[in-house]
């Protein structure tokens, strides 16, 4: 049985206690996107400024549980100053990380196809969120910010 320390890694708690890139950006030039998890009421408000195919600035507002807040904080650090192409690869890799366990459970795959998505992408601190997959109800908390980011990039570009 997974222990609670698998879920609440120290680095996650650190991002939860001291969230990075917290705040708002003026709209425009930034774009504002909202993500909502109706199950638990978690809310991510994402401010995204994209210049010449690069995310030049990002801010996060909203409220929610430690996992959703830490995940959005880690996401903001990971994407700030990065080219959109690279960020899209990161989104795919992160979502693969979150769904390997699920697709194994559902017998859809052995996870190897998802492993391809992870090939060559440096997740860094984000790997700490891997423990979340052992707590299936909390996966949505971790992916909320990333789904919002993906939707934001689709709409902004």
């Amino acid at each position: 049985m997974p222990g609670i320390e698998d879920l609440y890694r120290e680095i996650i708690l650190d991002h939860y206690r001291a969230p990075r890139n917290r705040g708002e950006l003026p709209v425009p030039p930034a774009n504002k996107f909202e993500g909502f998890n109706p199950l638990c009421g978690d809310e991510v408000v994402l401010y995204l400024e994209v210049d010449d195919g690069t995310v030049s600035d990002v801010k996060i507002a909203g409220q929610g549980c430690s996992i959703s807040q830490a995940s959005s904080s880690m996401m903001s650090s990971a994407v700030k100053g990065k080219p959109v192409d690279e960020i899209r690869r990161l989104i795919r890799a992160f979502k693969a990380l979150m769904s390997i366990h699920e697709s194994k459970l559902e017998g859809e795959s052995d996870g190897s196809d998802l492993a391809d998505e992870l090939e060559g992408v440096r997740l860094g601190d984000l790997e700490a969120l891997q423990g979340v997959v052992k707590f299936p109800v909390r996966i949505k908390c971790a992916t909320l910010a990333w789904n919002t980011l993906q939707q934001g990039l689709d709409e902004a570009s």
């Binding site: 609670i4 638990c40 929610g64 549980c65 430690s66 996992i67 707590f135």
Partner: peptide, 13 residues
Amino acid sequence: NIHAHDVSQVLDE
């Protein structure tokens, strides 16, 4: 300052 879901997760432990 603690979300309801985080509290119940720790309580489950």
